[in-house]
């Protein structure tokens, strides 16, 4: 996938050109779509932050917590990986109020997506942490470090770099999943697209623009994560680990 951005940029330019050329009313629809795009980006960012937090908390609890906490982490991970994102979204939207918790739809959206992707992220974190060699843990025991010190100073810094590419994929998954929030009345990009499609019937044009927008954000995420990876690799380890 080394040339992914290149390929994708080419299609992006091609499709955008095609759509603009064929779509006379393009300018009329752009403001509305951009408004929706802003909401999509907002939810993606909020969801990503929450997902990272949930993933680390859940993974570390599952690996190192005392059994009740470990059990909770396992239940969280299994439930959110085992059911569908849309079901989770609807559950938080329709059922949470019955507990007396009424949240803004936007909050529900960020919560649902963050929790959902966080559960998948927990397995990424767990995988990367368990991939750090046993010798590193043994060295920390020999140096009389506590487990918390070993984790914070020795193991996590080494686990972070290999974690970055899978996190990039998860952020793209999250971006794609944000389209579901249109089904709980949030005016994101997908919602705006349906709205405009219902009034204008310019299906090909509207949905093409929208798809290309999602693609553009996905490419942006890929590029950002790749530079983050390069930066982190330079900062944390010179060359391959022994």
């Amino acid at each position: 996938m080394a040339h992914r951005p290149l390929v994708v940029c080419a299609i992006l330019a091609f499709t955008a050109g095609l759509v603009i050329a064929s779509f006379a009313g393009f300018r009329e629809f752009l403001p509305g779509l951009l408004e929706g795009a802003l909401v999509t980006v907002e939810i993606t960012l909020g969801g990503s932050v929450l997902a990272v937090i949930c993933a680390f908390v859940a993974a570390l609890s599952k690996m190192f917590g005392p059994w009740p906490i470990r059990g909770l982490a396992v239940v969280y991970i299994e439930i959110f990986r085992g059911t569908s994102a849309l079901v989770q979204l609807f559950w938080l939207f329709f059922v949470l109020p019955r507990f007396g918790i009424t949240l803004e739809p936007l909050t529900v959206a960020i919560l649902a997506l963050g929790l959902n992707v966080g559960a998948y992220g927990a397995e990424v974190v767990r995988g990367a942490v368990s991939a750090v060699s046993r010798g590193q843990w043994e060295a920390t025991v020999a140096l009389n470090m506590s487990r918390a010190q070993a984790l914070r100073r020795i193991v996590l810094p080494q686990a972070l770099v290999p974690m970055i590419p899978p996190w990039g994929n998860l952020f793209i998954e999250l971006l794609k999943t944000t389209a579901l929030v249109s089904l709980i009345t949030i005016s994101d990009l997908a919602f705006k697209a349906q709205e405009m499609n219902a009034t204008t019937y310019r299906t090909v044009e509207i949905f093409s623009i929208v798809l290309v927008f999602y693609l553009a954000v996905a490419v942006l995420i890929t590029v950002a994560m790749r530079s983050l990876e390069r930066f982190a690799a330079r900062g944390l380890a010179r060359g391959p680990a022994q």
Partner: peptide, 29 residues
């Protein structure tokens, strides 16, 4: 704290310089 160990495969911390490897535990522990 009374015991130190040197391993067959060194187990140095790859993300720290030689000096930082030697400073880490004295500082944190």
């Amino acid at each position: 704290g009374k015991i130190g160990m040197v391993f067959q495969h060194f187990n140095l911390f790859p993300h720290m310089s030689a000096l930082k490897n030697c400073m880490e535990a004295p500082r944190t522990v």
